[in-house]
């Protein structure tokens, strides 16, 4: 049932993850592994623990026990500042909603991760604009998130997640709030962009048509994960 030992060449591997929120056991021995350039869908019913798995993998919340190896380093032993730095420089994030700062313009939002890493504002916004062009939203640069449509906003968010050239992109229901046409376009752009930079994508979704953009999927149920490729 649990993922086997870390396969050779894997970028991010987790084993025997356990995480409880109060009395609720969100993860109960889950495992995971992903290679550079791979898109892995994390599927499972609501409340199964798939978001918690993503949060643990991304170093947002520390697991109660278990091991998470990223590029040869054990994340469980890192402190909050180290994990934050890792998230800033090596990881990218796309969430379902609530992620763009409503006061900043779109280009400022996209440039934000670069600015957090210390890039100058001018340079950061230039890179940001390049990414917005790749995601076909460069004409929204001066608009605020409240003035753009959901699909456009999500593309801006994808641009932001990729702007630092992350090695792992975490996407939690990135199309959850979009219609199918917009959702598919976002997925196409996201996977294309990730493949072109050889970034690994951890894609949490409950939609099969979104999961179909992945290379393989793992299923989380009752806090346990099941790697379908290896199970068959």
């Amino acid at each position: 049932m649990n993922a086997p030992a870390a396969p050779a060449g894997s970028l991010l591997t987790a084993e025997e993850l356990r995480k409880a929120y109060g009395p609720t056991l969100a993860l109960d021995g889950a495992g995971f592994s992903i290679h550079p350039g791979e898109v892995v869908a994390v599927m499972g019913p609501s409340g199964s623990g798939k978001s918690t798995l993503l949060h643990c993998l991304a170093g947002i919340v520390p697991p109660d026990s278990g091991s998470i190896m990223y590029a040869g380093r054990e994340m469980a032993t890192m402190n909050d500042a180290e994990r934050s730095a890792l998230r800033r420089s090596e990881f990218g994030f796309v969430f379902q909603f609530g992620q763009l700062v409503p006061e900043l313009t779109c280009v400022e939002n996209v440039a934000l991760p670069l600015r957090l890493n210390g890039t100058s504002r001018k340079e950061a916004e230039k890179t940001a604009l390049d990414w917005m062009r790749r995601l076909e939203v460069d004409d929204l640069a001066k608009k605020r998130p409240g003035e753009v449509s959901g699909g456009q906003g999500q593309r801006v968010a994808v641009a932001r997640s990729l702007v630092t050239g992350p090695r792992v992109l975490f996407a939690d229901e990135p199309t959850g709030a979009l219609d199918s046409l917009n959702g598919e376009r976002v997925m196409e752009l996201l996977t294309d962009a990730a493949r072109s930079t050889n970034a690994a994508v951890v894609l949490v979704t409950h939609e099969a048509r979104v999961a179909a953009y992945s290379d393989r999927e793992i299923v989380v149920r009752d806090g346990k994960s099941r790697d379908m490729e290896r199970a068959v």
């Binding site: 099969a208 179909a212 992945s214 999927e217 299923v219 149920r221 099941r226 379908m228 199970a231």
Partner: peptide, 9 residues
């Protein structure tokens, strides 16, 4: 169900 889903995917 899981293996069937995998096959569908």
């Amino acid at each position: 169900l899981d293996s069937q889903r995998s096959e569908h995917l």
